[in-house]
Design a protein around this nucleic acid. Structure first.
Length: 118
DNA sequence: GGTGTGACGCAGG
DNA sequence: CCCTGCGCCACAC
């Protein structure tokens, strides 16, 4: 098997798939980790977070939030700046970055259905 | 090959 | 509203 080590290649393809979806999220909107996981149709939301943690530097990671619209405290301040620039609908007190949450009721963006494995 | 950990999700108290 | 525990999948040790 010349490509028996496709395992590495597979993870690379997975990373690309996730980054591609995140890039498609329009300004002022947001999506969730689990939705992206469903869109790529592979693994779970945790792996999506891992990808963003390593390769998210090249994509609008701030448009990816948790199921409840919140974001990791470490990145909330950075994301808050983007939200204010993009006028992303927020919920709660913006003054308290710790309680920062995106109003998914209005900002939620559904990722394209995962491509049929033909 | 078991154990721990994580940019997650949900149910329960 | 808060925190806790458990399940989930992939990776590092």
């Amino acid at each position: 098997m010349t490509e028996a080590q496709s395992g590495k290649d597979a993870s690379e393809a997975y990373v690309e798939a996730v980054l591609r979806v995140v890039e498609q999220v329009p300004p002022g909107h947001a999506t969730t980790y689990s939705l992206i996981a469903e869109a790529v149709g592979r693994s779970g939301p945790r792996q999506v977070g891992r990808v963003l943690a390593m390769y998210g530097g090249s994509v609008p990671w701030w448009r990816v939030v948790r199921a409840d619209g919140s974001l990791p405290p470490s990145h909330q301040p950075a994301a808050l700046s983007r939200y204010r620039e993009e006028s992303t609908p927020l919920r709660g007190a913006i003054t308290d970055a710790r309680a920062l949450r995106v109003d998914l009721g209005r900002a939620l963006w559904l990722p394209p259905s995962r491509p049929p494995r033909t």
